[in-house]
Design a protein around this nucleic acid. Structure first.
Length: 588
RNA sequence: CGGGGUGUGGCGCAGCUUGGUAGCGCACCUGCUUUGGGAGCAGGGGGCCGGAGGUUCGAAUCCUCUCACCCCGACCA
């Protein structure tokens, strides 16, 4: 590509609404432009990068034996009604009507469509396993799209779905996808971690998220500093480490009877802790939740946060939200801020394991302006115990019992998931097994956000000057900058190098714009091209070109060493028979 | 949806409190000079101030309504 022809409107300043660096740089580098909230145009540079991610995804999935298909964007409501998700999915599902008034939706994901496709034509175990994928535009009417391509409403996703005759086969495919995903993100030049994620209602621990580590990530992940356990903080487990230690039993025995203490107007743990001079870790935080199975009281240690997903699981409910003040008052007999587990009536109490470790605890007295001292779990109230608290750094690893958690922020670029028979049963996707019996297929699904992967790569690879693309994602691998554009001899050297690169399959950009060199260097850095070759009168006088890796130092190379050096910087090896090839020497 | 905020040339902003001819930087166009890290000078073009209604002799500015966008919360590739 000749830069003078390239549609890449670069900006010096970033638009005020771009928050994160990848969003800012994509706009400044002329890769994307916003059309509406969460909806973008991809300009040529953005398109090239997306194609690079897609190419890597295709290569790795093909190698893993998956087959590419294309499913529709507009999906009839009937399929979604069959799975029950037409009602369940909520407002994220953009529904439209056709001219006859029939209901359709824009596909946010394709379990229904692919299940329908497979059930029509696969009848026997002989047709299994099967892994079908597509790379396609999805639409999810997100409440709050943000961060450019990181969380758009319309976005390109690679979604794969596998079908199996039995669990073993499904697990095998899952492992294969795990491997393929690792290869994909490694090839994209990303530092990432596969972490355990919510397994949903089926499939044990068979769900992993692939997280690109970046401070701006929307997710938080923990990893053990001793073993290989890693999980999304939302899902990370903690074990019951506290029961039965000798000194603890002694402290329990020595805890005096509960005593009321007046705490007028002091509602928060911080306030009461300050007033009484008792550390917050002695507090039993008491939260009243409204669930679809009535109210539930949850207890966690002061300073710790409850994990509502864990609460939902422990309580066996689908919905749990903090109760309103009115409900709190009804359950505890006191206004918000003075709730405690002691003397509560007939209400379900679920406590975090850690609560059991408390002796001489402090909690609300279920009475206005009053708290209780010397509360001892087990003696003064009873509760069900479960893992309820959100993990934090330095918490003990539940797997190896030795290590401690480290916390990182991450961007979820991929998710692999065992679906089990949820869709195959709902939609009657069955096959005849070897034993002649009809069974529902076991399914897995596997997603990668293409644009999000590109954005994540920028989050991890940038500096003050702009993007620093990992070579496999770069829109062009090499920029050839001709400084003195009016000099025909130099132009010939530059174009000959440019075409030489193209002939070798190296995507190149020839910058022959009538701009001052500084402007052009800035643009090329901003766009993030990995290797820059500069040709000018000065370099030509030495029969050399100047080569500089993005972010590196510049060096002069004689014409016959040029290609070798470019290959080296791109992490490639010049083919043996080419080592003698030179770009055209100075014309006479 | 709840809470907060912003809408003024393509981009970044000022002007609004206290109504009186719409401004600055970048970008763009022309010319000259310049040409190794976002040039200088001179000239030039482009905005019904998000939209509708109202108050007023007069509204970017005050009032009402609306729309869009952004930020903080619960979802997700």
């Amino acid at each position: 590509m000749f830069f003078s022809k390239l549609f890449a409107p670069t900006l010096r300043e970033s638009p005020a609404d771009a928050e994160v660096i990848s969003h800012q740089l994509m706009i400044r580098a002329g890769m994307i432009r916003k059309v509406a909230a969460g909806i973008y145009n991809l300009l040529p540079l953005g398109t090239l990068v997306m194609q690079n991610v897609e190419r890597i995804v295709r290569e790795e999935l093909t190698r893993a034996g998956a087959q590419e298909v294309v499913m529709p964007v507009v999906i009839p409501s009937e399929l979604w009604r069959e799975s029950g998700r037409w009602e369940e999915y909520g407002k994220e599902l953009l529904r439209v009507k056709d001219r006859h008034g029939r209901d359709f939706c824009l596909g946010p994901t394709h379990e229904e469509v692919v299940t329908d496709m497979v059930r029509r034509d696969v009848k026997s175990y002989k047709g299994l396993p099967l892994n079908l994928y597509q790379i396609q535009t999805k639409f999810r009417d997100e409440i709050r799209p943000r961060f450019g391509l990181m969380r758009g409403r319309e976005f390109v996703m690679k979604d794969a779905y596998s079908f199996h005759a039995n669990e073993e086969s499904a697990k095998e495919e899952y492992d294969k996808m795990f491997e393929a995903y690792s290869n994909i993100f490694r090839r994209c030049g990303l530092k990432f971690r596969a972490v355990e994620a919510d397994s949903g209602n089926i499939g044990g621990s068979f769900s992993h998220e692939f997280m690109v580590l970046a401070d701006t990530g929307e997710d938080e992940v923990v990893s053990c500093n001793s073993c290989d356990y890693a999980a999304n903080t939302e899902r990370a487990e903690l074990k019951d480490h506290v029961s039965g230690q000798a000194d603890h039993i002694k402290a329990q025995a020595e805890t005096p009877e509960p005593k009321e203490v007046s705490t007028p107007g002091k509602k928060t743990i911080e306030e009461v802790s300050g007033l009484l001079g008792v550390p917050a870790s002695k507090f039993i935080k008491t939260l009243v939740y409204d669930t679809d199975n009535g109210p539930v009281v949850a207890l966690v240690r002061g300073l710790r946060n409850i994990n509502e997903a864990k609460l939902r699981r422990a309580a066996g409910v689908a919905r749990a939200e903090l109760a309103t003040d009115a409900v709190v008052e009804e359950i505890t007999g006191a206004p918000r801020g003075f709730a405690g587990p002691v003397g509560l009536g007939d209400v379900r109490i679920i406590a975090d394991f850690d609560i059991r470790a408390i002796t001489e605890g402090v909690t609300g007295a279920n009475k206005v302006d009053t708290h209780l001292l010397n509360v001892l779990p087990g003696r003064d109230f009873t509760a069900e115990y479960a893992d309820l608290r959100t993990v934090e750094g330095l918490d003990k690893c539940p797997r190896c019992d030795k290590g401690r958690f480290e916390i990182h922020r991450g961007i979820e670029v991929g998710h692999i998931f065992m679906l089990g028979t949820k869709y195959s049963e709902a939609m009657d996707c069955t096959f005849i097994d070897e034993d002649g019996k009809s069974k529902p297929m076991i399914m897995g699904c596997y997603g990668i956000g293409i644009g999000r992967t590109a954005a994540a790569a920028i989050e991890q690879n940038h500096d003050d000057n702009g993007i620093k693309w990992p070579v496999p994602l770069a829109p062009y691998h090499v920029a050839v900058v001709l400084v003195d554009i009016k000099n025909d001899d130099l132009m010939e050297i530059a174009t000959s190098l440019y075409y030489g690169l193209m002939d070798r399959g190296i995507p190149a950009l020839l910058d022959e714009r009538n701009e001052r060199p500084g402007v052009r260097f800035k643009d090329i850095d901003l766009i993030g091209i990995p290797v820059r070759v500069t040709i000018s009168k000065k370099t030509a006088a030495e029969e050399s070109v100047e080569i500089k890796a993005r972010g590196g130092e510049m060096d002069l190379f004689k014409y016959d060493k040029t290609m070798e050096e470019i290959y080296r910087l791109l992490g490639m090896v010049l083919p043996e028979q080419e080592s003698k090839v030179t770009i055209s020497s100075t014309p006479e």
